[in-house]
Design a binder for these strands. Structure first.
Lengths: 219, 219
DNA sequence: GGATCACGCCGATCTTGACCTCCATGCGGA
DNA sequence: TCCGCATGGAGGTCAAGATCGGCGTGATCC
């Protein structure tokens, strides 16, 4: 959450006329842009909308950011770092691998469920063809997978290629299931509690990954 | 593959001047549109590009499809049906659940690796904000998950909610891992063989899902 | 065998909408 | 009281989706 001064009423237009120092104005513009991009996607979002939402006119927007793309990238970078840092923190929070899986999955669900809907920028972007955007979005999966692959490698001794692929699969599991769990939730459908959902998927992941090479040929 | 008459050289422009019956022209336009949408995404793709690729002028395109969106949806419907049918076929191909998981995962990998890159429409669309598109893309995950959830339910007796969430996670596993496996492959990086990759992920999935409620509290 | 007709096709144009800048204006310090 | 600077309204530009009247070709009919 940002301070009430910069965003008095999330989702509503800020009344015009307030004079802000550069730093604060920039932060406020970022918040307004996030709300608009999350709600509308990149293409449908107009710079007018963002300026209106912030209670300023378009030229001030362009005095803080060179263009629409750079504004989007600034938000995307923030979001990407948040996911990766969250994953890293979860993995470092314990030495028990089962707990690691659980913590990571909970981190994913918590991030996806966070109020701002920031995850849409990363997991549901509509600008995937732009190289700069593509690179940042891929970085989430690759770096999270890299962190996890390390743990898998230490635990199982599998070749690096296979560790990475398994790690990517685990990330995909969390990402897709969390998105659909949230979608069910916001659609009012009665659904599973967050902790229970994350725990369920963590269980699936842990059963799949634990002691990998040994239990290869059963049933 | 389509007949040489309608697409003599994939990726190249068809020379202008050939007169085709409506049905054949429409099929050719769909193929051209698929190539362009796959290569550029929805927004970056111009109707001019598609017309050029097909060797016709823009008005012809509009005589076959009411607009850009409808053209895209026609292709998307085809792709969505292909994925769901493939999943259904894989699940019905055997009665052994381990084989079912393996067959389904192989089906996913085969689809993603298919030459036309059709999977990009479903898994990497840049029009996720349009309701019609969103609904179709979600249908892939929900219906595939529904099919899988049925099997899980019969096997484990878990509540429906949990079966569906687990099934969605499995779908996400296949989708994301297959996409990244393919990406590594097309970037020339030496990577795992398709059968081996699909088998690896199938193993992960099967270990995770088999005999679910029983082995809950180990290590 | 020749004219008619229908169908498919094209060049050129219109229009919309979104990103991005020019001149007037009003507020904070010397 | 006067100056500098951030701000606002209005407009330019351009790309891309969508369209109109005319042309050529092959089949049909007399």
């Amino acid at each position: 959450m940002s301070s009430p001064a910069t965003r008095p009423n999330p989702g509503e237009r800020t009344p015009r006329g307030s004079r802000l120092p550069r730093r604060a104005r920039r932060a406020q513009l970022l918040e307004s842009a996030l709300e608009v991009f999350v709600a509308q996607g990149y293409h449908a979002a107009a710079m007018d909308d963002i300026a209106d939402r912030a209670g300023v006119s378009k030229p001030v927007l362009y005095q803080h950011f060179p263009g629409k793309l750079e504004l989007y990238l600034a938000l995307l970078d923030r979001a990407v770092d948040a996911v990766i840092d969250g994953t890293r923190a979860a993995l470092e929070s314990t030495d028990d691998n089962k707990q690691r899986v659980a913590a990571t999955m909970h981190a994913f669900y918590t991030y996806v469920a966070s109020e701002e809907g920031e995850f849409r920028l990363v997991f549901e972007s509509d600008l995937t063809n732009d190289p700069a955007v593509r690179q940042r979005i891929d970085r989430v999966t690759t770096e999270c997978a890299e962190l996890i692959a390390h743990v898998i490698h230490d635990d199982t001794g599998l070749p690096d290629d296979q560790c990475r692929l398994l790690a990517v699969a685990l990330v995909g599991m969390g990402e897709v299931s969390a998105r659909f769990w949230l979608q069910d939730r916001v659609q009012g459908r009665d659904t599973i509690e967050q902790d229970m959902a994350a725990g369920l998927i963590a269980g699936l992941a842990w059963r799949g990954i634990r002691g990998y090479p040994r239990t290869d040929e059963q049933t």
